[in-house]
Amino acid sequence: MTTKTATTVTNASKPAAAADWNARVPKPRKNRYRWLIILALVAVYGWAFAGVPFTGLKETAGQITKSILAGVFAPDWDYVYLPDGEDLLRGLLDTLAISIGGTFLSTLICIPFAFWSATNMSSSRAVSSLGKIALSFIRTFPEIVMAILFIKAVGPGSFAGMLALGLHSVGMLGKLFADEIENIDRGPLEALTASGANRLQLLWYAVIPQVLPGFLSYTLYRFEINVRSAAILGVIGAGGIGTPLIFALSTRNWDRVGIILLGIVVMITAIDAISGFFRKRLI
């Protein structure tokens, strides 16, 4: 009798427990503003395309796309190298040279900034904060703005593009280098300090061996980014493959635009593959 009563009480308590659990589970709220957000997005897109002349747009866009694709898949190989210097190969080599020079320049400049910004290498937190503020200030200026300033200062050409990439990359590389320095193991530093090593010996034997692989990896990664940026800077006169690209666009030479785009894609893909291989080895 006692067993039946206990079973009955247990069975009776199950619906109550389930109801209590369902009451505690929060029900999903209906988004009242969902349709309002959708209508706002539709209105924004409608306003954006309101001034586009659709008359003849389909035919023109199709012809341009066909010509560019023809330049990509059936390029004029005579344009790869021309005696007058306005060829694809020299433009790509200029872009590569701008990227290498800008990356090398930024690496040399940002190393002192990195040690200045690292909290474990500065004399106080206020000093390292000043270094971080300086790097943040440098990062605020895009490459395009710096390229325009250097074009006005040193004239159009590859040198202006190299200076723009070099100065802009200091901000980002300096931040990454500072983070790498702050994450070092302090064990070797303490061991060398206990043995009477000076600051130069601490830097050479305890800090540099730990941060060098990270520095090289970040430098290669930044080099990949600079290759893409150098291809754009030529559009405003900072040298590289962007200069013949903007000329081809302005003269509506779509076949040449296609082969330039093909060259940019091939170069960036090859550089990404090579850089990724070396970065894996370093890490």
Score class of each variant (00 low, 15 high):
46 G>H: 07
130 L>F: 08
164 A>C: 04
150 F>M: 09
3 T>C: 11
246 I>A: 09
251 T>W: 15
127 V>D: 02
206 A>M: 02
82 L>V: 03
251 T>N: 15
259 I>V: 14
249 L>Q: 06
74 A>W: 05
26 P>C: 02
266 V>I: 15
220 L>D: 02
132 K>P: 00
191 A>L: 09
114 A>F: 05
151 I>D: 03
116 W>T: 08
16 A>V: 14
202 L>H: 01
181 I>L: 08
42 V>C: 12
19 A>S: 11
180 E>H: 09
40 A>F: 13
14 K>I: 15
163 L>M: 12
45 Y>N: 11
159 F>Y: 09
228 R>A: 05
11 N>I: 14
262 L>D: 00
115 F>P: 00
122 S>Y: 03
71 G>A: 05
170 V>S: 06
19 A>I: 10
55 T>Y: 14
88 L>K: 01
37 I>S: 14
156 P>F: 12
237 G>L: 08
152 K>H: 10
261 L>F: 11
182 E>T: 00
33 Y>S: 13
264 I>W: 08
271 I>S: 05
246 I>P: 05
160 A>L: 07
52 V>H: 04
38 I>L: 14
2 T>I: 14
24 R>F: 08
194 A>R: 02
182 E>S: 06
277 F>T: 10
259 I>H: 07
157 G>P: 03
222 R>Q: 11
275 S>L: 04
151 I>F: 11
12 A>D: 03
99 S>K: 00
242 G>D: 05
33 Y>Q: 13
73 F>Q: 01
134 A>F: 07
63 Q>G: 15
170 V>H: 02
41 L>Q: 08
131 G>N: 01
176 L>Q: 07
244 P>F: 01
247 F>W: 11
110 C>Q: 07
126 A>M: 14
276 G>K: 05
256 R>T: 04
59 E>W: 08
254 W>G: 10
10 T>V: 15
206 A>C: 03
60 T>R: 15
72 V>N: 06
277 F>S: 11
115 F>C: 00
260 I>Q: 01
102 G>Y: 07
140 T>H: 02
225 I>H: 02
89 L>A: 14
219 T>L: 15
222 R>K: 09
254 W>N: 12
145 V>G: 03
132 K>A: 13
138 I>N: 04
224 E>Q: 09
235 V>G: 00
215 F>V: 08
264 I>D: 04
191 A>V: 12
41 L>N: 06
50 A>C: 08
134 A>S: 10
137 F>V: 12
241 I>M: 06
266 V>Y: 07
4 K>P: 09
256 R>H: 13
143 E>K: 00
82 L>G: 03
72 V>A: 10
203 L>K: 01
123 S>T: 12
233 L>K: 05
188 P>L: 04
145 V>L: 15
8 T>S: 15
42 V>T: 09
28 P>R: 07
35 W>H: 08
239 G>H: 06
257 V>R: 00
49 F>M: 10
213 P>L: 10
152 K>I: 12
198 N>S: 05
127 V>P: 09
194 A>G: 09
